[in-house]
């Protein structure tokens, strides 16, 4: 009986802080999603609109569905190469060599660097005329790239008949490639790190066995390491997807809320800060939380089945 109470007392400070600083604002968000709320009515009586904000979001908001679709392509474009390059780097750094610790340290840094500072540096790097990248490209004799242009990538746009359709449907523009690249730069090291520590925690015997069998490095990787890493790869995908939904500073500093790069979180910031529609913002916030929860639920369910 006594023990029962103690365990609650121990959680008291944390629970108190969590309720005060997290649950209360979220409840407030839920509440405000039911009102038409903007600066003009904020300090007066709020017109209760029920679920109208949600209905408006789904039916009238010109950007909701398009930004949702764009988020999906963004997820696919960013997470896939990050996992592959992350795996590649993990396999590359698996062996011992001089300067390994240094390389690891370098790779740690982008994950933790202050987002607003990094975003401003990218803004400087990508400038067409004075940006570092184009000056560099020209120095080594290549064509400068319009990194921030919303033009379709020539590789796809020049495909006859379907080119422009492809570009529009799958966001194959320079600008989109740029935000994918920035995200890639920042988060590939994270994928590498997790996959690497997953690999180092695998029992050494499996490799020894493979070595005796005469399996080449690639075969060992393909048939032994990869299957054992499966669970961790899924965990990385899972974390990356959630983080990608929260991406903000990189896109906002480079492109503002331009339509061609507007993913769902940027749309949320637009509603909240540019047009100050607090009711709609809350409604979209609720929708995002529900989408992520759904995603979390599905992954946990699938993951659970796999384990069993």
């Amino acid at each position: 009986m006594k023990k029962d109470n103690t365990k609650y007392y121990l959680t008291l400070p944390a629970a108190f802080l969590l309720i005060g600083t997290t649950i209360v604002p979220i409840l407030y968000m839920l509440y405000t999603s039911l009102f038409r709320l903007d600066p003009v009515v904020f300090n007066k009586t709020w017109p209760f609109v029920g679920l109208q904000n949600f209905i408006d979001l789904f039916t009238k908001d010109p950007m909701f569905w398009s930004s949702l679709r764009r988020t999906l392509t963004f997820l696919i474009y960013t997470v896939t190469p990050q996992i592959f390059v992350g795996l590649f780097l993990a396999a590359l750094l698996y062996r011992e060599f001089k300067g390994k610790r240094f390389v690891q340290t370098i790779l740690l840094f982008p994950i933790l660097a202050t987002p607003i500072v990094v975003a401003m540096v990218w803004k400087y790097f990508f400038d067409f005329d004075t940006g570092f990248l184009n000056v560099f490209l020209q120095k080594i004799g290549l064509q400068p790239q319009p990194w921030l242009s919303t033009r379709g990538l020539p590789l796809f746009a020049n495909i006859p008949f379907v080119g422009s359709w492809l570009v529009n449907k799958f966001n194959l523009t320079y600008a989109f490639r740029t935000i994918v690249f920035v995200n890639f730069w920042q988060w590939t090291p994270f994928c590498f790190l997790v996959l690497y520590s997953g690999m180092t925690s695998l029992p050494a015997e499996v490799y020894e066995a493979a070595g005796i069998d005469g399996a080449s490095g690639w075969q060992a990787f393909r048939h032994i390491t990869l299957p054992l890493l499966k669970r961790i790869i899924w965990a990385v995908v899972f974390i990356r997807v959630i983080d990608c939904l929260k991406v903000y500073a990189q896109i906002w500093v480079l492109f503002g809320n331009a339509e061609s790069t507007r993913v769902i979180n940027i749309h949320l910031y637009t509603l909240g800060f540019t047009t100050s529609e607090y009711g709609m913002t809350s409604a979209l916030g609720v929708v995002i939380i529900m989408l992520i929860s759904l995603f979390v639920g599905i992954t946990i369910k699938l993951g659970g089945k796999k384990d069993a």
Binding site: T22, I23, P25, L245, N265, L268, S282, I292, S293
Partner: peptide, 18 residues
Amino acid sequence: LGILVTRIAPPAAVLMPF
């Protein structure tokens, strides 16, 4: 699960309440 959900609360939506 609750803790996980609090992690994903979008900052833009909780700015005004704060």
